[in-house]
């Protein structure tokens, strides 16, 4: 496996790094990173806002080959607190020197699975007490899931061959609900109109947002209108 730094590819702008910075700023993390695997070569590709000296240390030593946050993270369903990995043989090898580079070994990896067997790993770190860490995790875990899938889907669709496969497949129900939102109905109203619970409306909206790569419902409506799936009000 070879490590490819996507941000060094000339065509790429800095939007992914800015997104990572934004996540750190918004959710009070020190650092964030994203890694995925080339489906053909298996090469690890990624972005991170770690200090440059840590990135070059990591790459020079080829730590991605043994990094348990990558090799266990990619097989998990739920986010993996790095506490769970401390006993794995290579955790210390990777993180023993991390504090010298301003990198905490207190972290969390959110695994994302895509529809074509593609996998993305979104990791965040923070140097803080146990108590702060547990409270922070509880507060932001839902948002981290959103950020992780957003990053992954955007990285995947920045790859031309993958983006062709990724036209959003909205169900009839999702289109119908987006249309009602577009004309200004509340979730409660839509539930009443369609004779389903407002929680079901919310579930379809969550799904539609993810499929459209949108972080908010307003963004989702905008994209659905752009795709001609929903008529503007």
């Amino acid at each position: 496996m070879d490590l490819i730094d996507l941000s060094k590819i000339p065509e790429a702008d800095d939007r992914f790094i800015r997104f990572l910075d934004d996540v750190c700023q918004s959710f009070e993390f020190d650092h964030a990173s994203y890694a995925t695997f080339n489906p053909i070569s298996g090469a690890v590709q990624g972005f991170a806002n770690y200090r440059a000296d840590w990135v070059s240390h990591y790459m020079q030593k080829g730590l991605h080959r043994i990094d348990p946050t990558i090799h266990f993270g990619r097989k998990a369903i739920a986010p993996v607190d790095w506490l769970r990995l401390e006993k794995s043989p290579h955790f210390n090898t990777v993180f023993a020197n991390a504090p010298d580079f301003g990198v905490s070994d207190r972290g969390l990896t959110v695994p994302v699975r895509g529809p074509y067997g593609d996998i993305g790993l979104f990791s965040v770190t923070r140097d803080c007490s146990d108590q702060e860490w547990q409270a922070l995790k509880k507060n932001v875990i839902g948002n981290l899931q959103t950020a992780a899938v957003h990053m992954h889907d955007n990285v995947m669709s920045s790859n031309l061959s993958m983006s062709a496969l990724r036209l959003p497949a909205l169900s009839a129900r999702e289109r119908e609900i987006l249309q009602w939102v577009a004309v200004g109905k509340s979730q409660q109203d839509i539930g009443d109109i369609l004779s389903i619970s407002h929680r079901t409306v919310e579930v379809h909206l969550r799904s539609a947002r993810t499929k459209l790569g949108a972080l908010s419902t307003a963004q989702a409506i905008g994209r659905a209108v752009g795709l001609g799936v929903v008529k503007p009000s």
């Binding site: 994302v112 699975r113 895509g114 529809p115 067997g117 996998i119 839902g142 899931q145 959103t146 992780a148 899938v149 497949a169 909205l170 169900s171 009839a172 129900r173 579930v203 379809h204 969550r206 799904s207 947002r209 993810t210 499929k211």
Partner: peptide, 24 residues
């Protein structure tokens, strides 16, 4: 968000509609 049964072997339940997809 990834491969799962409703997207595949239980697709009949959804009557040909695409399945839900969300990290939540």
């Amino acid at each position: 968000t990834g491969p799962h049964m409703l997207a595949d072997v239980f697709a009949e339940i959804l009557g040909g509609e695409p399945p839900l997809r969300s990290p939540h």
